Structures are given as C-alpha cells and as structure tokens.
Computed example of a mutant assay.
Amino acid sequence: MLGLPDHVTACLFDLDGVLTQTARVHNAAWARTFDDFLQRHAALTGEPFRPYDPAADYNRYVDGRQRADGVRTFLASRGITLPEGHPDDPPGADTVNGVGNRKNVVLLQRIRTDGVQPYAGSVDYLHAAQRAGLRRAVVSASANCADVVMAAGLSPLLEVRVDGVVARQRGLRGKPFPDTFLAAAEAFGVRPEQAAVFEDALAGVAAGRAGGFGYVIGVDRVGQADDLRAHGADVVVRDLAELLTAADPPRPRAGGAGSTEGAAT
C-alpha cells in the first residue's frame, strides 16, 4: 500500500521540503539575502525597511520556484524591479541574477555547516516505491539538487533528476508551469496521467495540476493544507509515511486530472 491509485506507475518528487529538510535552509538563506538587499534599498530610497517574512513571503513568492523567478516575484510584491543581468553576475550585483547568486552563496555556506538531512518517512517511502517497481524521479527548481541528493544519501533511490540546471539547459519553464514534471515523465516514457506528483510548494502543486498528472500529493510541513488543496492537491499529508499506513486506497478528486471516469482503458 503506497497510497496511490492503481494507474500510477511513476513518482515525481520535489526535493526541498518533500524528500529533504532543506526548505528551512533555503528560507534562511533567502531571509538573509533579501533583508540585506531591502536594507540597502531603503537607505538609498528613503523608504521604510520592511523585512522579508519567512512564513508568508517564502510560501507565496519563493517556495518551489526557480531562483531567478523567486527573486523577481518577491521583489515585484514590494514594487521593486531590477534588471535581469546575466546568470554569472557576481553575488553583489543589484540584478535579478546577482541577488539570486548571493542567495546561493549563503545557501551553500549553510549546507556545508549544517549538512543535509532527509525526512525519515520519505526515505521509507522511496524504498517502498522501489520495491513496488515504481519509477522514481526528483524534480526540483534548485541548481544544487544533485549535491543535496548525494549529501542526503538518496542517489541510489532516484533514477531521474530534472532540476534547475537541466531546466536552464533545456529552456524549461519553472513551476507553476508543469514543464519540469513533464520532462521527468517523458524520461520514464509514461503519460502524465500515469505519474504522481509529490509537492510541498503551492507553485509545485499548481504545476502538477496544470500538467494533468494522475495524482497530486500535497505535503504540508508548514500548516498550509487548505492552500495546497486550493492549488490542486488531491490529498494532503504531513509526511509521506502517512501514505504507507493509509487504510483505504485514495480516490482522485472528481473530474480532476487523476480521475479515470470516461478514460480509455
């Protein structure tokens, strides 16, 4: 029992907040980066300094998005527009890419200091999915996905990786667009309706719904279950271990992407 409909043959997992406990590390890195920028911006413009909110701002504007998209979306919420710059801009540059690269420097420092811990329930779920013969991919907006997966010891349990590096190389749009999830399903040779998406981010859940995937599991680590459902989750759990102990098979929402009503067999 994996808590999935019978027609699902592939599992597409987000990384931060679903498989690994790195969402809080990302959030701390964003907080330091944005607050440094906002303080400098306030000093230059005379506007009051309003710090980044690690709860509301992270979940609404940053979580699940590619790095540059997170910078652009958050700053737009504050009425700030920066030039795009270039992917190799120095971390001190006041460009979208420069701010994003500064965040990455801070993130890597914290990862080296604190390490990476996977969620025990997620490790158990990956092992169960492997034993059941389900295909397993990690789909992350992070350009550091490969390093985090390796540091967490999850490499043997994941067959395909579609991350920020792959997205940039292939010109894939980031979440809430479904491009990266669709690329992972394509790598397995399965149709979207045969794959399940596991996401803790609102943008990621929306991407799973937009892509017509067979089942969308929202993972609620921060108390946003209602928002995850509103963005398209078929079911919401606090930890993947709950799916292993589900008493009854799940039923996709009526008329949703996972519904088999009227489908060809």
Rank of each mutant, 00 (worst) to 15 (best):
D220N: 14
T113S: 11
V105N: 08
A56V: 15
G133W: 13
D57R: 08
F198Q: 00
V216R: 04
A152V: 09
L243S: 10
D163H: 09
Q194K: 07
D124E: 13
A201F: 04
V160H: 01
L19R: 01
H41D: 06
P178V: 01
R32Y: 11
G171W: 05
V18D: 07
Y125W: 10
L243H: 05
G262D: 03
P192A: 02
M1S: 13
H41Y: 14
A196P: 05
A29Q: 02
N144F: 09
F177P: 07
T9R: 15
R40A: 14
V106G: 07
Y52V: 08
T180L: 13
C145A: 11
V106F: 12
V139M: 07
G92P: 07
T45V: 03
F34W: 15
A183S: 11
V222H: 11
T9P: 15
L44N: 12
A93K: 03
N104A: 12
L240S: 02
W30P: 03
A247L: 15
L134H: 05
P90I: 06
G164N: 10
A210N: 10
N104M: 13
G174S: 15
V160S: 00
V62W: 03
H41R: 10
A184W: 00
H231F: 10
P87Q: 07
E193G: 11
A29R: 01
G256T: 02
F13E: 10
L12A: 09
D63F: 12
A257R: 04
P249E: 11
D239K: 00
D69G: 14
L158Q: 10
A225M: 06
V116W: 05
R253V: 06
G85S: 03
R221I: 12
S122G: 12
D248Q: 15
D88T: 05
D63L: 11
A185I: 01
Q224R: 15
L172W: 06
A23K: 00
F188T: 09
G17Q: 01
V219P: 00
L107D: 00
E159C: 04
Q194W: 03
A195S: 03
G46K: 14
G98K: 05
G189K: 04
V166E: 05
I80S: 02
N144I: 10
R135M: 13
A10K: 01
R50L: 12
P250M: 14
T95V: 01
P54Y: 05
V160G: 01
A151I: 08
Q224P: 08
L82Q: 02
Q39H: 14
Q66Y: 01
C11P: 04
V165T: 13
M1P: 13
D179M: 04
A129S: 05
R78W: 04
R253T: 07
